[in-house]
Structures are given as structure tokens and as C-alpha cells.
Design a protein around this nucleic acid. Structure first.
Lengths: 148, 148
DNA sequence: TTGATTTAGTTGATATATCAACTAAGTTTA
DNA sequence: TAAACTTAGTTGATATATCAACTAAATCAA
């Protein structure tokens, strides 16, 4: 028997839900690829969909800090899934390229990503999802700092 | 100009929203208390509301790992907000007690917690929130492992 | 009651989050 | 063009997440 949640608000459930979803994603990834985290997989996928992305832009897309991106990329490079080359025009940047191994990993990952989303959202109508998304965006806007 | 999000699903927005909310919480805490994290504040609050809680139960309530709870408690003890005493009947457990300093911290924290929730949820009707909560719980159930 | 199992909590290793300081390279401006 | 500023990325420090291994204590079972 559990006592009532400490914060009886949807925000508590929100936190709980995202954790459960991340756990599900990791478990499903583990079944097709060894030693890859959700964030590494997501980063790889985004790099695949948007080639020639700077780390800065990549960070925005996956909603991460640039310091985090640096480290995630480092791990992907260590695993041979990603390669850094010199950027042709801007020496501050590096040119990130997915390796063959990275492409293979992505191919195996792709069905899992579909599965994760389907699993999480099963039984929800399009209308319900749309309403949910709308509310979520309101909360997001409420939490986002004002843009002067 | 941003390209489309890499995963055009509500789950991506969900992740984004919870991050924005946590950031908001931390910023508001920072304005009334120095050197306290959201998780430390939450832990302290739950311990205050449910006295004589074991770390195990505490972990469930704040939806954290028991290893994480151990470390959060350690930091709260270091900061003098929490004290460990010997548990009267079970030597494996420790009796967690909020110190006077901890109580002061909680008192200053309390309005901030209200503020955070109000800020995040402003402009949402009760009906909209209820609908949102219902959908969230469906997703949570979808992501939770089956209980045999 | 001893031996097996379970439970409570700690600790280590690694990944990520966040903030701040930093380097290097590009850009602007006086 | 030189100085000031901005941008891209790295690195360090600390907090948390997760998994696994571990200790010690409690409980169960034969």
C-alpha cells in the first residue's frame, strides 16, 4: 500500500511517465543492440536525418546541453559509430559523419524506435493525442522563460 | 529557424516539457535558497510529510533509485538539513530526522513549490488538467512492465 | 536452531545534466 | 587592421540515473 503521492499534481505523474518511457526504450534497445544508450541512439538518429549538423544545432534538436553532446559524441566515436573530420570552412567545428557501423546500428535501431512509440501510445485516439499535445505545449510555454 | 523535431511525437515534447519544468523549479529555488537541488528539496519535503519513512519507501515516493536516495540523503546530511539516527528495532535501517535547519529550509521552500506548480499550470482549466492527467496515466500504464 | 532467502542500505562504475571556466576561431567595430 | 566581441566546442566539478556487486541484518524454512 502506497501513501498518496507527495505532490498530487500532474507534474509528478509527468516525471514518472517520462522515466517509465525512458526505461522502456532502454530495455527495447538492449534487446537488439548491446551497449548503446537511449541518448546515444537518439543522437545517432538525428545526425542521420540531418547531415552536416553542428554540435550546437544538434544539441538544440535533442534538447541537450552542448557539454552533454560533446560527451555523447565522444562515446559514439569510441564505439566506432561516428567519425569526426575537419570542417571545411570553420575550424572550430568538426564534421560529424556516421560510419558504416553506425549505419548498421541505426538500421537495427529503427524498428525499435517505432516499437517504443507505438507501445507508449497504444490505445490513444488521434483526437486524444492532439488534445494531450496541446496541453503539453501550454505547460511547456508556461515553463519557458519569457523571450523579450 | 529550426528544422522539424527529430521525433515528431508527443513523447519528444514530453521530454522537453519536463526538462523545462525542472529548470524553472531550480531557478525559483535558487532565488530563495543557495545550494539546494530540486531533488534534495523534494526529498526533504517528502520526509517532512511522511515521517519515519524508510529509504526504500522514500525512493518509491519520489520515484528514484535507492542508490540515488542514499546519495541525496548523504548530501542533505552534509548540509545539516537531515540527521541520521539508529533505527530502534531494525538495525539495517536508519532513522531519518529533519533538523531545525532543515525545517527552516522547508519553510522557505514551501511558497516556491506552490509557485512552480502554479506557473507551470497557469491558464489550464480543471477539465483540461483532468483530461491531461488521464492520458498521461494511460501512457504511463503502457510503458510500465506487465505485472504477472 | 541452523541454513537459505530476503530486505535495507552502501558503494563502484559509467552515462547524463548543469554550470562555469576555458581555448580557439570567426566576426565586428572603431 | 587591431581590439573587442561572439561563437563552437572542450573540460572540470558536482548531482543524479542506472546497474551490479556487496554487507549486514532480518526472516523463513527444514
Amino acid at each position: 500500500m502506497q501513501p498518496d503521492p507527495p505532490q498530487p499534481t500532474v507534474l509528478y505523474t509527468l516525471e514518472q511517465t517520462i522515466k517509465a518511457y525512458r526505461r522502456l526504450c532502454q530495455q527495447n534497445i538492449d534487446q537488439v543492440i548491446t551497449d548503446l544508450t537511449v541518448d546515444q541512439g537518439l543522437t545517432l538518429m538525428v545526425l542521420s536525418n540531418y547531415p552536416a549538423l553542428s554540435q550546437q544545432r544538434l544539441a538544440e534538436l535533442v534538447f541537450k546541453d552542448k557539454a552533454s553532446i560533446t560527451r555523447i559524441i565522444e562515446l559514439l566515436v569510441q564505439k566506432g559509430l561516428l567519425a569526426r573530420a575537419a570542417h571545411p570552412t570553420d575550424k572550430r567545428k568538426s564534421d560529424l559523419r556516421i560510419t558504416d557501423g553506425g549505419r548498421q546500428t541505426l538500421a537495427r535501431l529503427s524498428p525499435t524506435i517505432q516499437l517504443n512509440q507505438q507501445t507508449a501510445l497504444q490505445g490513444l485516439s488521434a483526437a486524444e493525442l492532439a488534445q494531450f499535445d496541446a496541453t503539453l505545449r501550454k505547460i511547456l510555454a508556461n515553463c519557458s522563460p519569457a523571450q523579450p
